[in-house]
Every structure is written in structure tokens, then in C-alpha cells.
Design a protein around this nucleic acid. Structure first.
Lengths: 223, 223
DNA sequence: GGCGACTTCAGGGTATTCCCTGAATTGCCA
DNA sequence: TGGCAATTCAGGGAATACCCTGAAGTCGCC
């Protein structure tokens, strides 16, 4: 029983290279390749591979989103990210998307083969550098996690009401909807919003949404 | 300049043993010992050691609590936990309290010396087993934290261009700015945006920003 | 008692987004 | 080769967001 593999990368050279690199292993068989996230999602239901080697940076649907979709339709398929960039953001976001492994693009043939075998067996594969990175993230997060809310003064000069406005706006509401929710007039909401944008040095509501999520003023899961 | 060390453990044998174990290293000097958390806290301000080797399980104030107090009065002092038990709970709680390293009690002399040198130099020291434990905790926590992007079975049908538009919009740009960035007219951007909102079942651009961040179409740290 | 901030709101103007219809171009594929 | 999806763009109207000024009521605080 060979381990079936799907390769997803928008660079032909890398696809071909990876395939030939894997052709030397008799327990691994490359059964398909895709050059985009969308193509990958479509191919999975057709080919039903055991493992997907997936690039992150691709035009259109990126590797992380593709992973999400793939896992959605087949939770058993294992996904190993192969990225030239190894950043905290990619790794943590990747884990959120359900990846089973992460390899730098300059990984050796042995690493790739080992990763495929490991995830096919149901375990996770993350090399030392990535484990270290995760560790540091975990450490700083846990450590910094405990710190007093410090009322309001220290933050960025936002008032209580302004925080409420942000929460509303960042949850995707229009000014009118915010006004209704807080039982004030649209004009009031506009004023608050203007003040908030000024204080934070932002240009529009879109950036405010980003800011709010970035600074954990709101969370993305509720509702 | 020797690294000054304070040993904290309520077992005399372990204190003595550890001290003699360290006497062989000429860059490390044990300048004091304490048999309780309270005593340790008092001694720190007096002796001002570089590193504290601290047991967790002690009568009265335990090692983690003591760490918190110690760090409170001197943030520069480094604390390495030496515990016979290595549990997820101890490790994560320890990190919250600000520990700089964690050693199992059966660590070799080399490990202890290495740990002291490492934390004295400002880095963290956690061995492989502990790193692995943290990793697993992190992984399961992050992974379970996610949730499926609604129940749309097929890829939500976004085109490549639409993804590009989303990336632009979600980075906080106005239609005009997106148009400039992609070298198309504002009208084109509007059309794309409308189609995107329809496909995703969203009402406005604010919600699109949320969607994009939630689904990892864009990341928050770049730029 | 008053000064400053927070919060509320209005008027009136400009800019931008949102919505709908219609259409030309390209490329792919059956 | 005709059809379909994708991408591009326009006109024009309705809705909403953004900007500026001004102001009234509340509250805490010196």
C-alpha cells in the first residue's frame, strides 16, 4: 500500500522537482499535481490522496485556505506545507487551518520523505526550527497574557464608549446599525468614529476593523 | 565574572548535592541556599543572584509563586525550575510566572550547567521533552480554536482576481486605492467587490475585512 | 463653582460606496 | 465554433460614510 501524494505549487519547476525527488521512494507515489489552491480542492475529491504537499504563496486561493477547504471535504487527508518562508504567522495560522506538517522549501529529500511518512501515519511533522518558533510564540503569549487591563488611560487614549463603538463597527455593522444597537443617533456614531480614527491614525472603517482584530479588541469567533 | 546562583529546595540533600555538583564549574558560584519560597524571596534582595534554581513542590509558598514574587522585585534575575514532575500544568503555569528554564530533577550535571549558562545569557532553556509537551499543547489549542467557514460545500467560487481584490480591500484600501494598485478603474473594483459580497453572503466591506482575516486570505502583521 | 472630558446630537456639504443594468473583450473548452 | 466564465468598464441613482463646525448636558475633580 503506497502513500499517495498530491503536489500543489504554482511553480512548475518545483512541482516537477518534488515529484522526481519522491520517485525514488517505493512507498510513496505522486498521483497528481495542481498549480493553484482551487485546482487542489477540486482534485482532492477526485484523487483522494493520503498526503498533500502544499505551497502557501499562490495566486488566487492560498495554501492555507485551500487546506481549510480540503479538510472540510475530507478530514483524513494530511496536509504538509512547503514554504520558502517560515514565519510565526504562517505556522500558527497553518495550525489553525489544520496542517499536519510544515517544511522549509530547502528541506532535504530525507526530510520530505520523512514528513510524508510521519503525517501519513497520523502524527505531526514539524522540524526543530519550527518547533522552536512555536515555542517562542507560546512562551511570549503565555507570559504576556497575564497583565492588567489597566483601565483605559495607558492604552491609546480611547474612551469606554469608543471601545464599544469599535466593537460594533468591527463586527461588520454600518453606522446606522451601530446607532440602533447602542440606542443613539447616527450622528453620534459618526462623531465617535471620527474621533477614533483620528486617535488611532487610521483612514477609514476598514482599517479600524483590522486594528480591532489585530489588537484583540474583538474576537473573530463569537456570534 | 562568575554567574551567581541561589538554590531553593526544601530537601537538604538536594541542595547540598546540587551545590557540590556545581562547585566543579569555575564560571558558576553558589552564593546562597534557601529551603522555602519565602526565604528565597527574602534572600534575593539581599544576595542579588544571577540565577535561581528553584524547586516547585515546597511547603508554604511554592516555587512558582516564589518566582512571581522574585521577578516582581528584580526582573533581571533568572529562574530555572528543577522539578521531579514534568507536567503540562507545571510548565505552562511556570511560563506564566516568568520562569526562564525548566529541568527535570534527574538532569545531568552538564544539563544543569548548560541551563544556568543559557538563562544567565538571557535565553530560555527548555529541553526536548518539555518543548515537545508545550508544542502539543499549543497545537491542540490552536487547532481546536478554529471553526469551519460556514457550510458552503464548494470553494465559495471566488476567482483569482477576486482574491486579489479581497487582499487589497482587507488591507484597508479604498476602492480608488485598490484601483490604482491593480491598474484598473474604480468601476471595475466596485463590480468585483459586489460579486465577492454576493458570493460570500456579506453586506459590506467591513464584513469582508473580517472574512478575509478569519479565513487567512490576508495576514495582519505584514506591511 | 467651574474647568475639562466624555457623550450626545444637528446641519450641511463632499466623497465614497453600494446597487442595477448593460456591454465589450479575452480565453478556454466542449 | 458557439457558449460560458472571467475581467474589464460605463452611466446614473440611492445610500452611506466622511468632514467640519457648533453646542448642550453629564460627570468627576480641583
Amino acid at each position: 500500500m503506497k502513500i499517495t501524494v498530491l503536489i500543489v505549487d504554482d511553480h512548475t519547476i518545483l512541482r516537477e522537482g518534488m515529484a522526481s525527488l519522491l520517485s525514488g521512494s517505493d512507498d510513496i507515489e505522486v498521483i497528481g499535481m495542481a498549480s493553484s489552491g482551487e485546482e487542489a480542492v477540486n482534485l482532492v475529491s477526485e484523487l483522494n490522496p493520503n498526503v498533500i504537499l502544499m505551497d502557501i504563496v499562490m495566486a488566487g486561493m492560498n495554501g492555507l485556505e485551500a487546506t481549510r477547504w480540503v479538510k472540510e471535504q475530507n478530514a483524513d487527508v494530511k496536509v504538509v506545507i512547503i514554504s520558502s518562508e517560515v514565519t510565526r504567522e504562517y505556522v500558527t495560522q497553518g495550525i489553525k487551518c489544520g496542517i499536519d506538517g510544515y517544511l522549509p522549501k530547502d528541506a532535504s529529500r530525507e526530510d520530505v520523505v520523512q514528513a510524508i511518512r510521519t503525517v501519513a501515519g497520523g502524527a505531526k511533522f514539524f522540524d526543530d526550527a519550527i518547533t522552536k518558533l512555536i515555542f517562542e510564540d507560546y512562551y511570549s503569549r503565555e507570559k504576556d497574557g497575564r497583565r492588567k487591563p489597566s483601565s483605559k488611560s495607558v492604552t491609546s487614549g480611547l474612551t469606554r464608549r469608543e471601545y464599544e463603538i469599535i466593537e460594533q463597527v468591527a463586527s461588520g455593522k454600518s453606522n446606522q446599525e451601530v446607532a440602533d444597537a447602542l440606542f443613539v443617533s447616527v450622528k453620534t456614531v459618526e462623531t465617535h468614529k471620527k474621533n477614533i480614527l483620528d486617535k488611532l491614525g487610521l483612514k477609514n472603517s476598514l482599517q479600524l476593523v483590522r486594528y480591532a482584530i489585530k489588537n484583540n479588541i474583538i474576537s473573530l469567533d463569537e456570534e
